[in-house]
Design a protein around this nucleic acid. Structure first.
Length: 509
RNA sequence: GCUGAUAUAGUGUAGUUCGGUCAAUCAUGUUGGACUCUCACUCCAUCGACUGGGGUUCAAAUCCCCAUAUCAGCACCA
């Protein structure tokens, strides 16, 4: 009987199964449906989820943030629930005033469905409270050891002297810390974990520190919570059900588990995605800032940077970024982010919106012998007359890209105009009218190139990461400010500024 | 050094849960072609991968072991 089934083709097996056992067949089909989900399902999520996006406000958001933000957003979309934006500003050294402004802007650009925003700097009392509780439970102590010393002891799985202090002593020291009786660097609160834990990263990590050298912009504090404490407290208090974050937090998940267990709280479900390398752009906030200060970059939206605002300026749509990072998913494998993939996604969105225009790089003027004035009609979008035409008047003189002349072609088709033949005399070129027939140009395999009447085009600069291109473009492009146009045979660009000179930011081919 | 994880075409990804439907999915990319007054779009074709070695089994991308490589953590950063 088994052999009989095995002898059937896969399709036949499915048909038979459907006939004999419809409920099994239904289950099979359901399993196949699942394949359409890009992201894997989350456990215990059917009744809705509470998730978070928790950036550190040290600068504008970049591609790395977008991955976390969109991944969470995608699950919220699937399961419904609350999406909390939590500004993790517990380290004044890593807070940038402008970021309080820029982060929400970037989130607006991404179009996240944030339901609530909280600032950790508003919640210091909550952290102190849990800190005190941990001390009272006897699972946290105030450590006055030198950093190096402690590290050495930790590596040897040995306890530091402070660990044996009584609950009363610890509570007293904590109060003194809060009163400002200790200087920066000489004291911290540590959690008693397990000194014999095989992973040194788990052993007695710090919960609070004293910091007085840098004031915080939003809170007046002497004692600052460290991230494992503040994150554990907030994840619990805010009712987080699922946390998706980078694998650099894997060890923190283990550390935070100690806090959850001591407090009798239930830990959320965690997923840690792998590290994402991004070719060619600077992602480190501090490096970007340095570069901007040094004048190396024009600002946070410089074309060389991987910030979301830099991409927006180049005409990358947030939906394209979303599609790209969702496709990458939450795998724990380290990956290399590919601009090609992102560009392809962006082109999907942008191609049909962008009208086509002529751009002439490095214009060279030509007088066309034997020609008569004529007005060219060029389609705004190929194959769609309803989008209208551009009318370009030719009166005898025009400009073409220098590179095209240097390519050595003897017959050239001026797109939407006519053919010309080119002759080179020493360093200069002469051009002669060579008929209107497109077919003739095709037969001769003549290049079809973009052109503009002499003195007609508007100066145009295309900003590109690997070098700007200057030339002239059709004046009508000025009406496309802040939108995408395609310069034929150059690529898609976002028109950034118009006026005497048009500035276009290059996005991709 | 210690701890943990990961390894599928150039890139990303599906398949690994529970071995057989995998001669391995989809996208991007390469190359060629069709269409086209753009090197765009669309369409057709093409190229291209289970890290290596053992083992279990009738059968391994899938399970086990070893090796290698990569990554993360071991901060009074997040």
């Amino acid at each position: 009987m088994i052999a009989e089934v095995a002898s059937l083709s896969h399709e036949e097996q499915e048909i038979r199964l459907e006939q004999t056992a419809p409920e099994l067949f239904a289950a099979l089909s359901e399993k196949k449906e699942k394949k359409k989900h890009t992201l894997p399902d989350l456990p215990n999520a059917e009744d809705g989820v509470v998730m978070r996006f928790a950036p550190n406000p040290s600068g504008p958001l970049h591609l790395g943030h977008a991955r976390a933000a969109f991944l969470n957003d995608e699950y919220l979309k699937r399961y419904g629930g609350k999406y909390i934006l939590r500004i993790e500003d517990t380290d004044p050294k890593r807070v940038d005033t402008d970021a309080y402004q820029m982060v929400p802007e970037d989130i607006g650009w991404m179009g996240l469905n944030i339901t609530e925003t909280i600032y950790q700097s508003d919640r210091f009392p909550l952290y102190y409270d849990v800190g005190r509780q941990l001390i009272e439970k006897g699972v946290a102590y105030v450590c006055r050891c030198d950093n190096e010393e402690f590290k050495n002891l930790k590596m040897k799985k040995a306890a530091c002297p402070c660990r044996s202090q009584t609950v009363e002593e610890a509570a007293e020291l904590f109060d003194q810390m809060l009163e400002g009786k200790f200087a920066e660097g000489e004291i911290s609160v540590r959690l008693k974990t397990d000194l014999l834990h095989p992973d040194p990263a788990m052993r007695d990590f710090p919960l609070f520190r004293v910091l007085t050298s840098v004031p915080h912009q939003r809170v007046d504090a002497i004692v600052y919570p460290l991230m494992n404490l503040s994150v554990a407290v907030d994840d619990h208090l805010l009712g987080m059900t699922h946390v998706i974050r980078g694998k650099d937090h894997i060890a923190n998940t283990g550390r935070q588990k100690f806090i959850f267990d001591y407090m009798g709280w239930k830990q959320p479900v965690y997923r840690h995605y792998g590290r994402m390398g991004i070719e060619g752009v600077v992602l480190s906030t501090s490096q970007m800032r340095q570069g901007i200060v040094a004048g190396e970059y024009t600002g946070w939206d410089d074309v060389h940077l991987g910030t979301l605002r830099a991409m927006a300026r180049r005409g990358i749509e947030s939906e394209a970024v979303r599609n790209a990072v969702i496709e990458i998913g939450i795998g724990e494998t380290d990956i290399q982010f590919s601009w090609e993939n992102l560009y392809a996604k962006n082109k999907d969105i942008v191609d049909s919106k962008a009208d086509r225009f002529f751009f002439v790089a490095d214009p060279v003027e030509l007088t066309i012998d034997g020609s008569h004035p004529v007005t060219a009609k060029a389609m705004r979008y190929p194959g769609d007359e309803t989008r209208g035409f551009r009318e370009i008047p030719f009166t005898g003189k025009l400009v073409v890209p220098k590179g095209e002349l240097e390519s050595g072609a003897s017959l050239i088709r001026l797109k939407d105009l006519f053919n010309i033949s080119i002759r080179k005399d020493g360093g200069s070129y002469t051009a002669t009218y060579a008929g209107d027939e497109l077919q003739q140009a095709r037969d001769a395999k003549a290049p079809i190139i973009q052109w503009l009447p002499a003195g007609y085009g508007t100066p145009c600069l295309i900003k590109k990461a690997d070098g700007d291109i200057s030339g002239v473009c059709e004046p009508e492009v000025a009406t496309w400010k802040d939108r995408m146009v395609q310069f034929e045979r150059v690529g898609f660009t976002r028109i950034d500024a118009v006026g005497q000179q048009i500035v276009a930011y290059y996005s991709h081919r």
